[in-house]
């Protein structure tokens, strides 16, 4: 059995095979693989006995259910009103410089993807961003550099 088939089966065992399990299963795939591939969607459709197009339509509705490959760490910088007022553009510029990518791109080593997102519910501490599930707030250019350093260190230690 292919890896993705196994993953989807395990998730379906865990969450069940009714349509109500669709989001939890898709979320599980994203946690593991950072995106939902065509093959993964077909397996989900098979497990839940729904049409593959339905899986696709649902996945593309939700901005966290990526259908295109992303890096290991997905950085989502809030672009909404108070974060904008408090300088999210500078934060993005800094991230672009540190990571050597443009907004929307993934680093060559496949580690980081830089995206924008809407309000993260941290407006009193803007600018704010998420790296995967973790929020970082009251960002300054210096602070984001340190945060990225920290992730890079972590990666070095893992390898």
């Amino acid at each position: 059995m292919t890896e993705v088939k196994q993953l989807v089966q395990d998730l379906a065992d865990q969450f069940g095979r009714s349509q109500e399990s669709l989001l939890p299963i898709l979320q599980g795939i994203v946690t593991k693989e950072q995106h939902i591939s065509e093959d993964a969607m077909i397996e989900v459709a098979r497990e839940l006995n729904i049409s593959a197009a339905h899986v696709y339509g649902t996945a593309t509705f939700y901005s966290f259910l990526n259908t295109k490959p992303l890096g290991k760490y997905v950085i989502r910088v809030c672009k909404t009103i108070t974060c904008m007022m408090h300088g999210k553009n500078q934060i993005i510029k800094e991230l672009e410089a540190v990571l050597k990518v443009n907004l929307g791109e993934t680093t060559h080593d496949g580690k980081f993807t830089l995206l924008e997102t809407n309000c993260l519910g941290q407006c009193h501490k803007g600018p704010a961003m998420l790296i995967n599930d973790t929020p970082y707030t009251e960002l300054t250019p210096d602070k984001v550099r340190e945060i990225i350093m920290m992730y890079r260190d972590k990666e070095l230690r893992v390898n």
């Binding site: 349509q19 109500e20 669709l22 898709l26 729904i50 649902t58 939700y62 901005s63 966290f64």
Partner: peptide, 25 residues
């Protein structure tokens, strides 16, 4: 706990139900 996936409209109650039912919100 049911986790959302990044769609503001799912805060609207009936969209929230749709989302929980495995559909577009």
């Amino acid at each position: 706990i049911f986790l959302g996936s990044g769609a503001y409209i799912c805060g609207e109650e009936s969209a929230l139900f749709e989302s929980m039912e495995g559909k577009r919100g």
